[in-house]
């Protein structure tokens, strides 16, 4: 009798609850770890993308003797028709070097990037231009109703010299502005903006601070949505990298498509608490044409020598400025 009872005995409710509780705790421990692994994987994919861009840039340089421009603007084409000018982004120049020959074949430099002959090309999303940590819609649609694929990376053209004038960073020399020109003088970054295809762009010798001390391509993720710190906010910010006085729409940033010349950025500094430019924060403060990534604590950056490094967002504006300038004679302290 007693043996029969013993063999039929199941689990008590308490025992079941304890087991369930233990399993719950184990799952609770595991989930954050899984999230971390996923984020780490996304981060290394992102670094790999930048590495590919670095190789592409050097391939381009190897065959042409100079790097592509940050953007070609062709600004003084006769006014009248929008298509009288002919502008292209840095990413368009390196399409063949990242094995996007099919897109390169349908992209024509004879026509403005946004015009009809290029609309199939610019609607093509390219994985190498996207950070997997970012969740943006990957497309922006224009008022005319066609789509443009976006990029989470941006070529860096330099520092806004007003940062030095307003005392945010140490002065580095003259700005070297020329009437109608794009040169930023001592504040020039790795890439230069040019008017025409025949204008000289960056050569190895121009990067006097050293290729390994100069940032070439940065993360600027989630455009066209506007983020300040990690919050999407509805604020209308001025587009400082464009002197025609435009204001971005509320909660919007221009320059999201990889094919848009405005994707190139100039560091302006930011004060997140006040939502204003010319502040001390340079990484992960805002994605309004500043360095911003979805990675916790910093952003991935491609240097001129093709190396990819992760910079902490606590870096001071002045140290970062040393890494941005290509020939100011300022070598950043080791981070």
């Amino acid at each position: 009798m007693t043996t029969a009872v013993r063999t039929r005995r199941g689990f008590t409710l308490i025992e079941l609850l304890v087991v369930i509780a233990i399993i719950a705790i184990l799952i609770g421990l595991l989930l954050p770890a899984v999230q971390k692994v996923r984020e780490a994987a996304a981060r290394s994919t992102c670094q790999n993308n930048l590495k590919q861009l670095g190789l592409a840039l050097h391939n381009y340089e190897g065959s042409r003797g100079q790097f592509p421009p940050a953007a070609k603007w062709d600004f003084d084409a006769p006014a009248g028709s929008p298509t009288n000018y002919n502008r292209h982004s840095m990413f368009a120049y390196i399409l063949p070097e990242i094995e996007q020959g099919t897109v390169a074949n349908i992209y024509t430099f004879d026509s403005q990037w946004s015009t009809a002959p290029n609309r199939a090309a610019i609607a093509t999303p390219i994985k190498t231009f996207q950070c997997p940590s970012a969740t943006n819609p990957r497309f922006t649609t224009t008022s005319a109703g066609y789509q443009r694929a976006t990029s989470d990376y941006a070529p860096l053209a330099g520092l806004n010299p007003q940062l030095a004038n307003l005392g945010v960073i140490q002065p580095r020399g003259t700005s070297g502005y020329t009437e109608g020109g794009f040169g930023l003088g001592a504040y020039q970054g790795f890439f230069v903006n040019v008017w025409k295809d025949r204008d000289p762009t960056t050569r190895h010798g121009d990067v006097r601070d050293g290729l390994s001390n100069t940032i070439a391509v940065v993360e600027c993720a989630e455009r066209p949505k506007l983020f300040v710190r990690d919050k999407e906010i509805a604020v209308a910010l001025e587009d400082l990298d464009n002197p025609d006085n435009s204001t971005n729409g509320s909660g919007q940033v221009t320059g999201a498509p990889w094919s848009q010349p405005r994707i190139q950025i100039v560091i302006d500094g930011f004060t997140p608490g006040a939502n204003t430019f010319f502040g001390p924060r340079v990484i992960n403060a805002t994605n309004a044409s500043e360095v911003w990534s979805r990675h916790t604590g910093g952003a991935n950056l491609l240097y001129g020598d093709g190396s990819v490094r992760f910079l902490r967002d606590s870096i001071t504006a002045d140290d970062f400025a040393s890494l941005v300038t290509r020939g100011a004679g300022d070598i950043a302290r080791n981070d």
Partner: peptide
Amino acid sequence: GGPPGPPSLA
């Protein structure tokens, strides 16, 4: 996405 212009400050 707005009036055209060369980047940063001519």
